[in-house]
């Protein structure tokens, strides 16, 4: 087949404390929308990291765009990061640079810091509702603003995939609805989306808008969740 953007085959991940994830096989096909859920500490963040090459599986294979991460050197993993936008669980920024430059960071590091791209940046900042905050430093931002900024940064390279780890972690309901809206819009534009969250209300809210599959991590395995959601 080979059509999956991200593919896990019998993946296990263990660390000193034991096996956290075992025997996971999964394909994310292009344009799909997945939620990843499970209690805190179940391994959602670890799973996400396996999906963008930040961690290597201790068994099995992870393939990004049909290529085994184990065969990639660090440079190639870095290049893959440009096709996989990541919203990190704790939204790290460069605190000494204004928001505008933080959002443009993927362009900067890939040498695409030109006028055309910067026009996109303005549009993008308006899209996430941060146009007026362009010059603010990250520590001055609210939780919701940080989450939206992280999403803008994740999509500025027009990646094929967006992975968002608890994007609504500590923001209010209204703001998380707005963020979900942005993710749904991205999915409609053809992007493959995976959102890790323990917030079942968010998943329910999404169900009416997008044909999302819900994956649940339980007992170290990833299962397709039933219709009870």
């Amino acid at each position: 087949m080979g059509a999956a953007v991200i593919e896990l085959e019998n993946v296990a991940y263990s660390y000193g404390g034991g096996e956290l994830l075992s025997d996971i096989s999964l394909k994310l096909s292009p344009g799909s929308f997945h939620f990843l859920t499970g209690p805190s500490g179940a391994g959602k963040t670890t799973f996400m990291k396996l999906c963008y090459g930040a961690l290597l599986p201790t068994a099995g294979h992870v393939r990004l765009f049909d290529r085994d991460v184990r065969l990639m050197d660090r440079d190639e993993i870095a290049l893959n990061r440009r096709r996989i936008g990541v919203v990190h669980q704790d939204c790290q920024f460069l605190d000494h640079l204004p928001l505008r430059e933080n959002i443009a960071l993927p362009l900067t590091v890939s040498g695409r810091h030109n006028i055309d791209e910067l026009a996109n940046l303005k549009e993008l900042m308006a899209w996430v509702g941060l146009k007026s905050r362009a010059e603010a430093l990250p520590p001055e931002l609210s939780g919701g603003e940080r989450q939206r900024a992280a999403l803008a940064r994740a999509v500025i390279m027009s990646p094929d995939v967006v992975l968002a780890d608890e994007p609504t972690g500590n923001i209010d309901w209204e703001m998380s609805q707005r963020l979900l809206q942005l993710l749904v819009e991205l999915n409609r534009m053809g992007k493959t989306i995976m959102v890790a969250t323990h917030d079942l209300n968010l998943i329910r809210a999404a169900k009416g808008q997008v044909p999302a599959r819900v994956l649940r991590i339980a007992n170290r395995r990833v299962q397709l969740a039933g219709a009870d959601l």
């Binding site: 930040a54 660090r74 870095a78 990061r81 440009r82 460069l94 993927p106 590091v109």
Partner: peptide, 16 residues
């Protein structure tokens, strides 16, 4: 360290 991890997250190569 923090700066480096952010740069890595957004796809910066080691040489950069």
């Amino acid at each position: 360290k923090q700066v480096i991890s952010v740069l890595r997250l957004v796809g910066a190569q080691d040489s950069y």
